[in-house]
Each structure stands twice: as structure tokens, then as C-alpha cells.
Amino acid sequence: MTEEDRTDRDLGARFARLREEERAGGEDYRRFAARVAARARLRARPRRRLVLPALAAMAAAIVLAVLILRGGSGGATAPAWGRIDLSATSLRMPTDFLLDTPGNELLRSVPALGAPDGTATGGLIHAPATPTPEKPS
């Protein structure tokens, strides 16, 4: 008998003993099935108790999501923090005075087209609001 044969025989005997012990302490299929079914019912109970709170939480989450989405799309209930009026903002830097050149107000003013005199526009001569055809001389 080789060393390998002895190992096989030894392991076979050890596993056989383990198998016998496990099977002696085990139960037949019918009893196992009945016990497992009873345990499954016991486990299912707490889950059933959690169903209602879980559904309520889900419904609350859906309502909240709908409210936020409707608010974000600019409806009447839009929250104040969701809108910024860009036209009301202005940025003044400490060095802005360097850009103030002499006569700046003349350049920035909007000419009043068709005004009777140029005083309103700082003395500038403007073309009339509607161009008049040139008279032949």
C-alpha cells in the first residue's frame, strides 16, 4: 500500500465519521421542511409590520420631490432663494475711478433723437429722428 493510498483511506475514514455524526444529529426531509416553513413565517412577521411605515415614508418622499420640482420650474410657490435678479446687481471695484476719463458722461449719455436743441445731450448736434430728403439747391 502506497503513502497516497494510506492518506486516501485515512481521509475517507475521517470524512465517513463526520458524515455519520452529522446524519445522526440531522432530521428527515419532512421535519426539516416543516421547521423551515415555520421559521420563514416567523421571519416574515416583522417585515409585514414594517410595510405600512415604509409605504408612508415613500409617499412623503414622493410628495416632497413633487413640491421641490414644481418650485424649481418657476411657479408661484418658487422660493426666494431660487431666483436672483441680475439687473439689480452691480459691481464696483476700488480702481474703477481710473476708467473715469474727462468727458466720460458725454460718451455714456444716450442722444435724444429729434430733440429741438442739443442741450439735453451735452451740446451735441444730432440728426433728426426721421431723415429729411435733401433739397435740391
Binding site: 475521517r14 470524512f15 465519521r17 463526520l18 455524526e21 445522526a24 444529529g25
Partner: peptide, 11 residues
């Protein structure tokens, strides 16, 4: 406790 010492060693 049901398992023998030998089987416990094997496991």
C-alpha cells in the same frame, strides 16, 4: 458537543 474531537479537528 455532538461532534467527536476528531471530527471537530477535521472541520
Amino acid at each position: 458537543l455532538e461532534r467527536s474531537e476528531e471530527s471537530t479537528r477535521l472541520v
